[in-house]
């Protein structure tokens, strides 16, 4: 196994009520990269992220995380290196600030300047004391990103992190993601419907279809000279699903 692999996936399968949702022969995610997963709705992208966060146990196959095989019962110390910003974030009752500090609270740490920095970064200082459950969809999504970043994860899994945002905030979030990856070397797996976002952010891109990884390639090659005709069709926006 390569030293640089954060995840090494072998013959991974996940079924829900006998229906195969994930069926991946082999996939590697490298330390410090931004890896984008694109694919149509229902391809299994969110399901794969749940497996990578060790929130569920695979039906078959293995996930090696930093060289160790893990499953849904990964030790707490391993789980605490990884976090997800979910497609539909659910915040806790309480203030925006409390929500952002929550991961620190779980680790027995006191909220500190990092929380305020992140509040400023996502442009929600003025709402620090507001009730989190009353925020708009886009504000919630930004709070969800901040509460993930506050714990300084080694691996950050992003599931459509800009789906509810206006162009200004899309640019803001993309800048934050890029900066975290660059400055801290955070490994990022980015699930997105938006091929242009993948092109802007990712080092490598994988196309997922019907639970399978069809093609993984460096971003430039993925878009300019895809190996698989399905990738070519998807990139051109011609994919019929």
């Amino acid at each position: 196994m390569r030293e640089s692999a954060v995840y090494q996936i072998e013959k991974l399968k996940k079924e829900y009520s006998r229906r195969i949702v994930i069926d991946i022969e082999q996939l590697e995610i490298r330390a410090g990269e931004i890896f984008a997963i694109v694919g149509p709705s229902g391809a299994g992208k969110s399901s794969l992220l749940r497996l990578l966060n060790f929130l569920e146990t695979p039906t078959a196959g293995q996930i090696f995380y930093r060289g160790q095989m893990q499953n849904g019962n990964a030790p707490l110390a391993v789980r605490r290196e990884i976090t997800t910003v979910f497609q539909r974030p659910v915040l806790l009752r309480g203030s925006v600030r409390e929500n952002i500090a929550y991961g620190m609270h779980l680790r027995g740490e006191r909220a500190n300047g990092r929380v305020d920095e992140l509040l400023a970064t996502i442009g929600l200082q003025s709402l620090a004391r507001a009730s989190a459950v009353k925020l708009s969809g886009g504000e919630m999504q930004r709070v969800a990103l901040a509460r993930a970043l506050v714990i300084e994860p080694r691996v950050l899994l992003l599931d459509e992190p800009t789906a509810n945002l206006d162009p200004h905030n899309v640019a803001l979030i993309e800048a934050i993601v890029r900066e975290h990856n660059r400055a801290r070397g955070t490994t990022i797996v980015l699930v997105t419907h938006n091929v242009f976002q993948a092109k802007r952010l990712a080092h490598r891109v994988g196309l997922m279809l019907g639970g399978r990884i069809v093609e993984v390639n460096d971003t430039a090659a993925f878009f300019d000279s895809p190996r698989d005709p399905r990738t070519a069709a998807f990139v051109r926006g011609e994919m019929v699903y």
Partner: peptide, 22 residues
């Protein structure tokens, strides 16, 4: 979904249950 998300943020099982009760 709250329970799963809290777990993803690093909650132990007890912390997960506590979050739901809260």
């Amino acid at each position: 979904a709250l329970r799963v998300q809290v777990r993803s943020l690093g909650a132990t099982r007890a912390q997960e249950i506590w979050a739901v009760l809260r």
